[in-house]
């Protein structure tokens, strides 16, 4: 027993050493992907508002979602998550409403960015970046330039074993839905079965399911054609100018990464100040220039260098065109059937 209490004593001593902040300093805690915002954001934010910014990192939407669901979001003020997750968090009652009066820089957004289907009028989420999902390929390794989702799903013989698809459930299925002209939010059993059969057939021609390193597989030549988010395809383009991106003729989904304020936030005022700070034009510009994602920040996009848009043509897709694509939405009660279908594909041999 002695040893145990000693251990706990040691552990708590450590926590005091590691975690204590000056009691009176105002602070907010955010959770984001690493490298998804300027490195000096904390210093600049502190200089402008006097608020300490503490940054936690998450690897995936799924993880931060799980963590916030289990803990009620305790300890976090602002989260960066993709729109279907923002929607679910809101439905679960874990988010605070966005008070537009406290975030004047919302005016920097394109008008289109305030009309997003998952949250018209930005009532609980503020968009940070957005884009499409399509085909990223080595123009020097494919016989014909791909134009359709079917070029991925029913690959020609020379592409067999040279293609990858995104592993994340919603985007994986979206490729099949779009190829069949269905909604990316389809949950009826007959459509699920049809797409499942198609994707199981595609699996035999697949090099791998990959949603992290697909662009490096293109650079190395391991793969010739990959299912990709436009921003990530740009990392490949940066390494090799033979890499190109196309939105298939059947269309894409519109993905949106958003910022949300937790209901558990100890400092919702500070959280609003932070979102307002992020919406400054310079931060939007940083996102576009450094991680090569499109941002709904009009002021930021307008200040972009022409050369960037020429090198990465998908960055120039107009907001009005983006809005033609359907967003992934939380599937609600349809999720059970959807998930089982995905498991069937993943377990298929």
């Amino acid at each position: 027993m002695k040893l145990r209490s000693l251990g706990i004593l040691f552990a708590s001593a450590l926590s005091i050493a590691a975690g204590v902040m000056p009691a009176n300093a105002e602070k907010i805690v955010i959770s984001n992907w690493d490298g998804y915002m300027p490195k000096d954001m904390a210093e600049k934010f502190k200089a402008e508002t006097g608020i300490d910014l503490e940054v936690a990192v998450h690897a995936t939407n799924e993880e931060i979602m799980g963590k916030v669901t289990a803990s009620g979001g305790q300890g976090f003020d602002v989260l960066f998550v993709s729109s279907p997750f923002a929607e679910a968090l809101n439905q679960l009652g874990l988010l605070s409403p966005i008070d537009a009066a406290k975030i004047p820089n919302l005016s920097n957004l394109y008008p289109e960015a305030t009309q997003l289907k998952h949250d018209p009028g930005n009532t609980f989420s503020v968009p940070y970046s957005w884009g499409t999902t399509g085909l990223c390929y080595r123009s020097d390794l494919v016989k014909a330039e791909p134009t359709s989702w079917n070029d991925l799903l029913n690959p020609s013989d020379d592409l067999k074993g040279k293609i990858t698809m995104l592993a994340t459930d919603r985007w994986l299925m979206a490729a099949g839905f779009l190829a069949n002209g269905m909604s990316v939010n389809t949950t009826d059993q007959a459509s699920l079965d049809k797409v499942r059969d198609q994707l199981v057939a595609t699996k035999k021609s697949l090099l791998a399911y990959d949603d992290t390193t697909f662009y490096s597989k293109l650079v190395s030549g391991e793969a010739s054609l990959v299912h990709a988010w436009d921003g990530w395809c740009n990392y490949g383009i940066a390494e090799n100018d033979k890499i190109k991106y196309v939105v298939p003729k059947e269309g894409s989904d519109l993905w949106v990464d958003t910022m949300v304020i937790t209901k558990a936030s100890a400092n919702p005022e500070g959280a609003a100040k932070f979102i307002n700070f992020v919406l400054k034009a310079e931060n939007g510009k940083w996102v576009a220039e450094n991680i090569m994602y499109k941002t709904p920040n009009k002021a930021g996009m307008d200040s972009l260098d022409k050369a960037t848009l020429e090198k990465y043509p998908n960055m120039a897709i107009a907001p009005a065109d983006l809005l033609k694509f359907e967003q992934l939405r939380d599937l609600g009660a349809g999720m059970k059937a959807f998930s089982k279908t995905v498991s069937e594909i993943m377990a298929a041999k």
């Binding site: 590691a18 975690g19 805690v29 959770s31 503490e54 940054v55 936690a56 990192v57 998450h58 690897a59 993880e63 799980g66 963590k67 289990a70 305790q74 300890g75 976090f76």
Partner: peptide, 12 residues
Amino acid sequence: AYFTAGAGQSST
């Protein structure tokens, strides 16, 4: 570790 960590760099 991810789930039981506190919010912030100090327990990453």
